[in-house]
Design a protein around this nucleic acid. Structure first.
Length: 492
RNA sequence: CGGGGUGUAGCACAGUCCGGUUAGUGUACCUGGUUUGGGACCAGGGGGUCGCAGGUUCGAAUCCUGCCACCCCGACCA
């Protein structure tokens, strides 16, 4: 492991790229735009999955799995959706390779093995799933249908960045069908709340809930709700979306049900997803120039114990203490690692675990053995205290909770102190260009104005916030009437 | 997909302009020893299709052509 990370203040994006690699989260692969998620990074993703999966199940959803490939004819059935993704689809056209007649050691795509119908590698699964739902739904008694799947999807991106935008990524996609419009809308909101709760409570990242504008919404949806988070460089990151699909997919795939009066109606749909992009949000929201800062609830290792010793005898004594601490903490459900390697010096280990964002570090050395103490260090504040061993162990569960809460509070304060309200176009431009963060401003509601603002400032409307200022005013750009403020920002 | 840059040991780089012994440095790695309260030190050692494929040449990391990958800036997007 080489020393040092670029400074956030000097080059934020380089800092991010290096951090992802040096903290062993992920790396680029031999495949363009696709990443290898390394064990430590995947451990964090697994923790996210675990919590989300629990929350989905608590709200009545079941997991299932649908195919990776979508026949082109199915894919194009819902036109808006198909058009929205057409430009970034990987397509399977052949099913066999064969030896190159000109060079026996090489393989070529067998021209005789062309598929009759091309298969689209799913950029999202609405098409296959709704095509299946057609067979699953006959009566109102089959509704609601509440399904989630954990899967990989492919979107052929021009420019990729580890976790934030990769050609293949992992996500979950919920797809539900309902008898009434109201029920589907309620589901859409409920799942947005689940996401917001997860991101705030477990990831410790403050989010803003709102609705996407017409031009930013999911192709094929009636409405798209979203949560937006602010990164340390002031840019916005869309952390999750929940779509009210109306009857668009039901009509496209002919999914009807008999209501309790025996009349046929189209079902109402929703879909919602979060992806490995959340890893990017987690990294960018809290980490510093020393490395990752992980909220305790998602840290694969919550406490690391580092012995400081001379010789085997001393190590043996310290190890006995460490074992006691480990057992006691584990019995409280805390994950602990004891790093007794003699191949690295303590200072090296300190730096290493800071890079990897381990929330708490316990150091035990000869002085501690004499005094019955340990040194306890917090990753987020770098605060170090020497405590009696029993006191330290007793304090840790509570301290982890405190850290979790404080990490969230810092994110919350950062977001609010970097959210500015303005009615002046000059000030708007100045904030977007020089300060960054969110800008709350009036907008006349037209796509033309939205585009124009994007062209002039690179800022987009991140959302029409639910709990924003609902008073009317004049559009920041055109001066036309506006019914409420919306949130502008530069975005990832 | 456009503009720019980079590809040499696990990683970070020098060497390339101006072709010429055995391709070098730091770090990491292996062995032995001394060390251990914030990224240890000494000694010895191993590791290279110089991104890939062609070409020019007596001779190519170096020159030419094509391709691939990655990074930065744009357009597109979760």
């Amino acid at each position: 492991m080489s020393k040092g990370l670029p400074k956030r203040s000097e080059n934020y994006s380089e800092w991010y790229n290096e951090l992802v690699k040096k903290a062993d989260l992920a790396e680029n692969s031999a495949v363009r735009g696709c990443m290898v998620i390394k064990p430590y990074g995947f451990a964090i993703w697994e923790k996210m999955q675990q919590e989300l999966d629990r929350m989905f199940k608590e709200t009545g959803h079941q997991n299932a799995y649908f195919p990776l490939f979508v026949p082109k004819s199915l894919f194009e059935a819902e036109e808006q959706n198909a058009e929205g993704f057409a430009k970034e689809c990987a397509v399977v056209t052949h099913y066999r390779l064969t030896n190159d007649p000109d060079n026996k050691s090489k393989l070529i795509v067998d021209p005789k093995a062309r598929l009759e119908e091309e298969l689209v590698v799913r950029p999202t699964s609405e098409a296959v799933i709704w095509n299946t739902y057609k067979n699953w739904i006959q009566s109102y008694r089959d509704l609601p249908l509440l399904i989630n799947q954990w899967a990989n999807v492919v979107r052929w991106e021009m420019r990729t960045r580890l976790f934030l935008r990769t050609a293949e990524f992992l996500w979950q996609e919920g797809h539900t069908a309902h008898a009434t419009k109201d029920e589907a809308i309620t589901e859409t909101k409920q799942m947005l709340d689940v996401y917001a709760q997860f991101v705030e409570e477990f990831m410790g990242v403050k989010v803003l809930k709102g609705q996407k504008t017409e031009s930013e919404k999911f192709a094929g949806a009636v409405d798209t709700l979203c949560i937006e988070a602010m990164m340390q460089d002031g840019k916005a990151l869309q952390a999750g979306t929940s779509h009210f699909l109306g009857q668009n997919f039901a009509e496209a795939f002919d999914v009807k049900f008999s209501n309790n009066e025996g009349k046929l109606e189209y079902v109402w749909g929703t879909s919602w997803g979060v992806s490995t992009r959340l890893m990017g949000a987690l990294i960018m929201a809290h980490s510093d120039d020393q490395g990752l800062v992980l909220p305790p609830k998602l840290a694969p290792i919550q406490v690391v114990i580092v012995p400081i010793f001379k010789g085997d005898d001393q190590l043996k004594q310290i190890s006995e203490k460490a074992d006691t601490i480990t057992k006691e903490l584990r019995s409280k459900g805390i994950s602990v690692k004891y790093d007794d390697r003699s191949t690295h010096k303590p200072g090296w280990k300190f730096a290493e675990y800071e890079l990897k964002g381990v929330p708490l570090r316990i150091a035990i050395g000869p002085k501690d053995m004499e005094n019955g103490t340990v040194e306890l260090a917090r990753r987020d504040t770098k605060e170090k205290t020497v405590l009696q061993l029993e006191e330290a162990v007793a304090k840790i569960p509570e301290l982890l909770e405190t850290m979790q809460a404080e990490i969230f509070n810092r994110s919350k304060e950062f977001t609010s102190s970097n959210t500015h309200e303005t009615d002046s176009w000059d000030e708007f431009k100045d904030i977007i260009e020089n300060k960054g963060g969110f800008v709350s401003a009036h907008w006349d509601g037209t796509a033309e104005t939205e585009d124009k603002i994007k062209e002039l400032t690179k800022a987009t409307i991140r959302c029409i916030p639910f709990d924003g200022d609902k008073t009317s005013g004049k559009c920041i750009l055109t001066g036309n009437p506006s019914s409420q403020r919306v949130i502008f920002a530069k975005a990832y």
